[in-house]
Computed example of a mutant assay.
Amino acid sequence: MSATFKTLDELDLKGKRVLLRADLNVPVADGKVTDATRIERLVPTIRELARHDAKVVLLSHFGRPKGKVDHEFSLEQVVPAIVEALGKPVGFIATDWNDLTNAQKGIDTGPAGGIFVIENTRFHPGEESNDPELAKRMASLGDVFVNDAFSAAHRAHASTEGLAHLLPAAAGLAMQAELEALEAGLGKPKRPVLAVVGGAKVSSKIDLLENLVAKVDALVIGGGMANTFLHAQGRSVGKSLAEKDLADTARRIMDKAAKSGCAIILPIDAVVAWHFKADSPTRLYGVDAIDPDGMILDVGPSSIERIQGAIDDAHTVVWNGPLGAFEMNPFDAGTVAVAKYVAKRTHDGKLVSVAGGGDTVSALAHAGVKDDFTYVSTAGGAFLEWMEGKPLPGVQALKK
Rank of each mutant, 00 (worst) to 15 (best):
V197D: 12
L59S: 05
A337F: 08
E305R: 15
V56T: 09
S280T: 11
D312R: 11
A289G: 10
E76S: 14
A289D: 14
V237I: 15
L351V: 01
H165S: 12
I115Q: 00
I311C: 04
F73P: 06
S353A: 15
M138Q: 07
T37M: 04
V79G: 03
N98K: 13
E128Y: 00
D298W: 12
G15W: 06
Y341I: 10
T249V: 14
V361Y: 10
S204Y: 02
E183Y: 11
F5D: 06
L141V: 07
G63S: 05
K190V: 13
L219A: 09
V216C: 10
E243V: 12
D12F: 08
T109F: 07
K14R: 11
E178D: 07
F145A: 08
L11D: 08
M387V: 07
N329S: 15
K14W: 02
T360E: 05
F73T: 02
L166H: 03
H52E: 14
D359R: 11
G63N: 02
A355Q: 09
K66C: 06
A314T: 00
R21V: 06
Y285V: 13
A232T: 01
R38M: 09
T109N: 09
V342H: 10
D291T: 05
V352C: 14
E48W: 01
K215D: 08
L141G: 04
N211V: 01
G114D: 02
A257K: 00
T282Y: 05
D288V: 12
D70G: 00
E183F: 09
V317P: 08
V18L: 00
V197R: 08
A153C: 09
S151D: 07
G198V: 11
S203E: 08
V318D: 13
A135M: 04
P393R: 08
T4I: 13
E48C: 05
H347Y: 11
H157C: 06
P189W: 11
A170P: 00
L20M: 11
V216R: 08
G199E: 05
K350M: 12
G113Y: 08
P192T: 11
P89L: 07
F150M: 07
A333Y: 11
V57A: 01
K188M: 06
R283D: 10
G110S: 15
D9P: 01
V272S: 11
N25L: 06
L186H: 12
F145G: 02
K259L: 08
R47V: 02
G334E: 13
P192V: 06
E10R: 15
M138P: 05
A153T: 04
D70W: 01
E119F: 00
H71E: 15
V395T: 00
V202S: 07
A36T: 12
